[in-house]
Design a binder for these strands. Structure first.
Lengths: 129, 129, 129, 129
DNA sequence: GTGGTCTAGACCACA
DNA sequence: GTGGTCTAGACCACA
């Protein structure tokens, strides 16, 4: 599980962490019952203050995704796989809609957008491969 | 020129305004030499504090996109059309890349993403038509 | 609206604030649409760190009781009166149940408990009158 | 002696244990000179870490309620019956006062409170019977 | 002025 | 070791 965070101010760091943990659960990189990396470990890994990670955990707990075992750590709740999968789909669709909306408003047409999508899909793939 | 702004906190409002003005210039809805709506007018139209609009204008001026003419208002600079077109493409491509990256990292594959893109393109078109 | 807070560690301060604000709404000391005292003011009044008050506001916002107006402050949401009245009743009944349970477990019988209740009701009334 | 503990975070677990032992002494379930269950046994019974029980014993010892006999275990001190009875009454009266205070501050009147008390007394009785 | 976020660092209860 | 809470204080976007 390798989380990364972009502190440049676009989106609050703790929300980025929330999202990535949800994705990791959706991906089954994190499974129900499994312990999450501790606040301290995760905060070091992300070069972020422990409070910021704790805040992310708070949110996830309020959302019923994770659960705290006193003194032992934080685990993924039972039904979280399904919920995270649904949320992931919604979150991504929303962001896609935003960007497309902006692109269309900004004067690009559907084909130009498709071209950008394909180009980016390719470059990301290559960046990885 | 009808700008809209989403105050929900994702992106700073003044940056949304900056972006939309650049788009308007790229689209030639705003042309070189043309007067922009005044801070006051635009702030009312967007239901936003005048300071926020002023902040956006500062940014655009620092970027050489617009220029203040004493006593007359704010106008689009000469070379802005080209610059805004380039920036628009870059900005959108960047955001598309971001979203796609997130979607891929989040465990969706290229086809799932294309499906979402098409679905959103359709729904946006319908929402408008 | 005079809130007080007991920092002795029994219950987290931010939860005490949450509770008192809910009570104030239930009492209509705070009404829908009304601005709450600002984080800074309230933190001074309670001799507590602003972050602690902010944390309480977070909780209330997550619970849909209050709403943030950017740059202006925090207001009570529309349906909050009813919700807070219900919650107040539940919260108090729970705490009463806890105490009674403890008292019964601790070896007091129902009449001894009633006696204590009446005695305290009287002494509180006198303390106030 | 059957202790129970509520780990939900309202009150520290070790304090709950302290209180229950005092109650057990007041009830003469535990008598002067009698051996308490060992830290190990009690921690298993309560599904709690031994350190937490040990911490409770520390408190009771500091308060002169119990005493460690080397090699034999922990016993109830001589004068503890009286002291625990007094403390029990005080503790319960205090907690009742707290709750009533909160209820009155929260806008309920004496009769509403009595109603809740009676309702809870009944439901607890039924829960047990 | 308003709230939101973040850092740095402390102390606590619990395992 | 674990997370929870709190303080002190900074910077940001917004009104």
């Amino acid at each position: 599980m390798y989380f990364t965070v972009d502190p440049s101010g676009g989106i609050a760091i703790y929300l980025q962490i929330v999202r990535q943990i949800k994705y990791a659960i959706a991906e089954q990189t994190l499974r129900s019952g499994q312990l999450l990396p501790s606040v301290r470990v995760l905060s070091q890994q992300l070069a972020v203050n422990p409070n910021t990670v704790a805040r992310a955990f708070q949110e996830l707990q309020a959302d019923g995704i994770i659960e705290t075992l006193r003194g032992r750590g934080v685990v993924v709740c039972k039904g979280s796989l399904d919920r995270c999968r649904k949320q992931r789909k919604t979150m991504i669709a929303e962001r896609v809609a935003d960007v497309l909306n902006e692109a269309l408003t900004g004067g690009l047409d559907a084909d130009e957008i498709r071209a950008i999508v394909e180009q980016q899909l390719k470059s990301i793939k290559n960046g990885k491969g």
